[in-house]
C-alpha cells in the first residue's frame, strides 16, 4: 500500500532523513519508533507532501506521490494526523470535523462518518458547538483523530498521538487506533511511547539520526535487547 524507497530529506543543509526505505501492506499497523530528532516526523511530513524528498520514491497505491501536492494526496485517501494535535482552536468542534471532509462531496456518507467519530469519542458530540480551543488536551487529540478520519482515508499517519496526555487518555487513544486497524484501516504510527505502540502494531521500524536502525515483527522488537535498553527503560 505504501512504499518508501531510499528517500532523503533535507532541512536546508541538515540531512534529516537518510536513505530510508519502508513498506506497509494493506491492513497493517506499523510503528515507527525513535528518539527526539530521529526523523520520524520528517518522514511523515514527506509522505503527506508537506516536505519533498530530494531523492527516492514514495509509492502510495501504485503511484509515486513525491511530487504531488499535499491536498491531492489527501484526495487519494491518505490522512495525516499531525504532531501536537493542531486542531483549529477558533473553529468549533463540528467545523473542525467537517473541514476534515473538505474534499468530499458525498454528504450522506459524511454524516455517517460524523456519527462514527461521535460513537468513537462521545465527548466530541457533547461539545460539537464549542470552539476547539476550549477542549482539554486529551479531547483535542480525540478531535484531531476524528478530523483525520473524516476524509475517509485508507491510510492513516499518526504522529505522536499520546504526546503530553494523561495515562488514562493514552489508553483510550491506543484502543481507538487498534479498533481502526481492526476495521481495516492501514496505519503508520509514529511514537516515542514504544511499548504501547509495539503492543498494538504488527511490525515496527526503529529510526536513529535519520537512519533505520532496526526493523521487524512487533513482538521481536519488544523482546530485542537493544530496543529494550534504548526505548523501553531497560
Amino acid at each position: 500500500m505504501l512504499e518508501l524507497n531510499d528517500i532523503n530529506v533535507y532541512y536546508g543543509k541538515i540531512h534529516a532523513v537518510k536513505n530510508i526505505s519502508l513498506k506497509i501492506k494493506k491492513g497493517e499497523l506499523v510503528a515507527l519508533l525513535g528518539a527526539n530528532g530521529a526523523g520520524k516526523t520528517t518522514t511523515l511530513r514527506t509522505i503527506s507532501g508537506m516536505l519533498r524528498a530530494k531523492s527516492g520514491s514514495i509509492i502510495f497505491d501504485g503511484q509515486d506521490i513525491n511530487k504531488i501536492e499535499a491536498h491531492k494526496i489527501v484526495a487519494m485517501g491518505l490522512a495525516h494526523c499531525p504532531e501536537g494535535r493542531q486542531v483549529f482552536s477558533r473553529l468549533s468542534v463540528l467545523e473542525n470535523l467537517k473541514i476534515g471532509a473538505f474534499l468530499r462531496k458525498d454528504h450522506k456518507k459524511i454524516e455517517k462518518d460524523l456519527e462514527l467519530v461521535y460513537s468513537l469519542f462521545p465527548v466530541l458530540a457533547e461539545r460539537k458547538n464549542q470552539s476547539a480551543g476550549t477542549l482539554s488536551g486529551g479531547e483535542q487529540q480525540m478531535l484531531a483523530i476524528g478530523r483525520s478520519l473524516m476524509s475517509n482515508p485508507s491510510l492513516l499517519l499518526f504522529d505522536e498521538p499520546s504526546l503530553g496526555l494523561a495515562p488514562i487518555i493514552i489508553e483510550k487513544i491506543f484502543e481507538v487506533i487498534k479498533e481502526l486497524k481492526n476495521e481495516g484501516k492501514t496505519i503508520l504510527l509514529v511514537e516515542q511511547n514504544a511499548y504501547n505502540a509495539l503492543a498494538i502494531a504488527d511490525r515496527g521500524y526503529v529510526l536513529e539520526t535519520g537512519n533505520i536502525k532496526l526493523s521487524g515483527e512487533a513482538g521481536d522488537l519488544l523482546a530485542n535487547d537493544e530496543v529494550k535498553k534504548a526505548y523501553l527503560g531497560g
Binding site: M50, H71, A75, V87, I99
Partner: peptide, 8 residues
C-alpha cells in the same frame, strides 16, 4: 499547514 493536511 494543518489546513493543507485536510486537503485544502
Amino acid at each position: 499547514n494543518a489546513a493543507r493536511l485536510m486537503g485544502v
